[in-house]
Amino acid sequence: MNIFRLTGDLSHLAAIIILLLKIWKTRSCAGISGKSQVLFALVFTTRYLDLLTSFISLYNTTMKIIYIGCAYATVYLIYMKFKATYDGNHDTFRVEFLVVPVGGLAFLVNHDFSPLEILWTFSIYLESVAILPQLFMISKTGEAETITTHYLFFLGLYRALYLINWIWRFYFEGFFDMIAIVAGVVQTILYCDFFYLYVTKGESGSNKINPA
């Protein structure tokens, strides 16, 4: 474990908690893409099946359970509890255009053709594009609540920190996972546009305007 991976995990946890609390406190999921949250729940489900097969550390197990729990809780709040506030008219990204190619790629490009490894690879590829419905929704509505932009900032920061973690592990431990690195680079690049706006817009006004 190194400081970059730890900070990355905490940033990821912060993002997940920020979103869950935002929906719970405001009792509204306006401006939130339910589709992205479903994709994240799918990412965690397919990646953390090894909870049932191997124990790595208390930290590892605890975080996985928290991630899965919060992901499903968020999906529940969006599609069940606060369904009335779900903005389905703007959450129209065709997720099948993500899931199908990612599923096919996971079969073609993986480290090992075993069910667990293919599901892990699927989750890595899916995570890199899972935020697209949310970014698409924001571009359609033309704005995002400040708290949502903090959520996106920490979510984007987490994988950027993981990229540094992978450089660190390659240099100090000789570890190298090409699939995770390439997907992580793609994932982080998708946030670049948002990062630019997040930083340049600062805290001006209550809503951030993102160009379409």
């Binding site: 995990d9 191997s54 993981y162 190298f176 996972d177």
Partner: peptide
């Protein structure tokens, strides 16, 4: 060669 790390990352 690409050394596969054990799945110790989240």
């Amino acid at each position: 060669i690409l050394k596969k790390k054990k799945k110790d990352e989240l």
